[in-house]
């Protein structure tokens, strides 16, 4: 997860090279759609998000991750496909689609969605270890979110410090369920699960009777330990390791760090 500046750009360059090299071989000429007027080639079976990401074009997203199947919950990736709204992380790419992405209309909606996520949780970035490396924050910067706009909910959500190596601060959870997918699909442990209903009820459950992480076989080496896009699942004793100015999104905006595989 931790990537320094130079690694990012090296990866970006490598990706560009690979995309260029791959393109003729893997995509047929007619497997192309339009994203904000740009030609995006795709392989059959790819979603709009996958194809755009592989191509190096940024579509805002939070709950989608290249290593996992789409969850489709955050709706940051909302685009207009042939004039109709839809989630680009779940819609299959098809030849000739006309997709709008970074229009003022869509970015306005995305900014409102971000504001919703900010007010429903407790996001005090100055005291959050994820600050500077946080996808929610970086996406909000990208979309020029200047304020939370809505009235704050200030919910009372738990912190779980029971585990020796990992801290869970659910005040920052955005319900993306990536931890659920990582623990289930990669770690084979099913430690996290999304439950509850509605605004107040919805939350991540921990698979133990006490509800505490310490009472599970969770390990700091689990994929789920490093998947959280925000500051919920944090390694202990590693706080604020990277100085301000050097953190992931200090170096370049999130839209300039499009990666289609995890580092």
């Amino acid at each position: 997860m931790k990537t320094s500046n130079s690694e990012v750009s090296v990866q970006a360059n490598a990706r560009e090279a690979r995309v260029k090299a791959d393109r003729p071989a893997e995509t047929k000429a007619n497997n192309i759609f339009q994203l904000d007027g740009e030609d995006i080639p795709f392989r059959p079976g790819q979603t709009i998000m996958q194809a755009a990401t592989h191509h190096g074009t940024y579509i805002p997203h939070l709950c989608w991750h290249p290593d996992f199947s789409a969850h489709g919950s955050c709706k940051l990736c909302t685009v207009k496909v042939n004039g109709r709204f839809g989630s680009s992380c779940t819609i299959a790419a098809q030849p000739g689609l006309d997709v709008e992405n970074r229009t003022a209309e869509l970015d306005d909606k995305r900014r409102t969605l971000l504001q919703m996520l900010f007010v429903e949780g407790n996001h005090f970035c100055p005291s959050c270890e994820k600050s500077g490396n946080c996808a929610l924050q970086a996406t909000a910067y990208e979309l020029n979110m200047m304020s939370p706009h809505f009235d704050m909910f200030y919910p009372d959500r738990p912190v779980d410090a029971s585990h020796p190596d990992i801290l869970l601060d659910f005040n920052r959870c955005i319900m993306c369920a990536l931890c659920v997918a990582a623990s289930r699909d990669v770690d084979g442990k099913n430690i996290f699960y999304m439950g509850g209903r509605g605004l107040l009820g919805r939350r991540v459950h921990i698979s133990s009777e006490s509800g505490k992480l310490a009472d599970t076989d969770f390990a700091v080496t689990d994929r789920a330990a490093s998947i959280c896009p925000v500051g919920v699942i944090l390694p202990k004793r590693k706080g604020f390791a990277v100085p301000i100015g050097q953190r992931t999104y200090d170096l370049a905006p999130i839209s300039k760090q499009v990666r289609d595989t995890t580092p």
Binding site: F118, N122, F124, C125, P126, S147, P148, Y154, P155, D156
Partner: peptide, 17 residues
């Protein structure tokens, strides 16, 4: 509104729970 505290309550708002 200048700064985190004016914008979302900031550190003082952590007493809100």
């Amino acid at each position: 509104a200048v700064g985190a505290c004016a914008i979302n309550g900031g550190l003082p708002a952590q007493r809100n729970h």
